[in-house]
Computed example of a mutant assay.
Amino acid sequence: MTKVTLTVNGRRVSGECEDRTLLVNFIRNNLGLTGTHVGCDTTQCGACTIHMDGRSVKSCSILAVQANGSEIVTIEGLAKDGELHPVQAAFKENHGLQCGFCTPGMVMTAVDMINRHGGELDETTVRHELEGNICRCTGYHNIVKSVLSAADSMKVKQAAE
């Protein structure tokens, strides 16, 4: 067993795991944060997307020991003081989810996408960047609409600050 220490959603945590433990399983099983979903275990679906050291990654493709010392943000860490993150709020307002299974990964991918593009997004870019996230319920129309809405909302909020 190997000791892994991470900062998860702003809190320093440690736990022991086998060297072969995937980060997604460490997050869910050792830390009890079940918002990060296990979908395919092959990096195809994106349900396990989290932020590691400021970038979105698929946590089923990383061993927990490889993430040792990293800063992790999961879907549980986005809302602040009971207020939804603008991307979460946009998904809710624009019906960007149905069954909800892919939603955490979509939201985490969208937050990173908006941050990297400075909120300057168009439909083509959003659709291209969401290619690694699979939703089996929708035609992606409301997901794309949610991401674009959140990008606009975040630009307005940043301009006001």
Rank of each mutant, 00 (worst) to 15 (best):
V8W: 09
N9R: 06
S14G: 14
S14C: 11
S14L: 05
E16N: 15
E16H: 14
C17Q: 04
C17S: 11
C17R: 02
E18A: 15
D19T: 14
R20L: 10
T21Q: 02
T21V: 07
T21R: 00
L22H: 10
L22Q: 06
L22P: 00
L23D: 00
N25M: 10
F26W: 04
I27C: 02
R28Y: 00
N29L: 03
N30F: 00
N30L: 01
L31R: 00
L31K: 05
L31I: 00
L31S: 02
L33C: 01
T34V: 06
T36V: 09
T36H: 01
H37W: 12
V38T: 12
V38Q: 13
G39M: 08
C40N: 12
C40T: 07
C40M: 10
D41C: 13
T42I: 04
T43D: 13
T43L: 15
Q44D: 15
C45Y: 14
G46Q: 05
G46W: 02
G46A: 05
A47Q: 12
A47I: 10
C48F: 12
C48Y: 08
I50Y: 07
I50D: 03
I50C: 03
I50E: 01
H51M: 11
H51K: 06
M52E: 11
D53T: 10
D53F: 09
G54S: 09
G54V: 07
G54T: 05
S56E: 09
K58W: 09
S59G: 02
S59Y: 08
C60G: 03
C60T: 02
V65Q: 09
A67L: 07
N68W: 05
S70M: 04
E71A: 15
V73C: 13
V73W: 12
I75N: 12
E76Q: 06
G77P: 06
G77M: 15
L78P: 03
A79V: 11
K80P: 03
K80G: 01
D81Q: 12
L84Y: 07
H85F: 04
H85K: 10
A90R: 05
A90S: 14
F91W: 09
N94V: 04
N94I: 04
G96D: 08
G96E: 08
L97C: 13
C102Y: 14
C102V: 04
T103S: 14
G105R: 01
G105I: 03
G105Q: 06
M106C: 08
T109E: 11
V111L: 09
D112G: 12
D112V: 06
I114M: 06
I114K: 05
G119I: 01
E120Y: 03
E120K: 13
L121A: 04
D122M: 00
D122E: 02
E123G: 12
E123I: 00
T124Q: 11
T124F: 01
T125P: 06
T125L: 13
T125W: 11
V126T: 02
V126Y: 04
N133F: 03
C135S: 12
C135A: 09
C135T: 08
C135R: 14
G139I: 11
G139V: 10
Y140K: 11
Y140V: 05
I143P: 01
V144W: 08
S146K: 07
L148A: 10
S149V: 01
S149H: 12
A150S: 06
A151Q: 08
D152L: 05
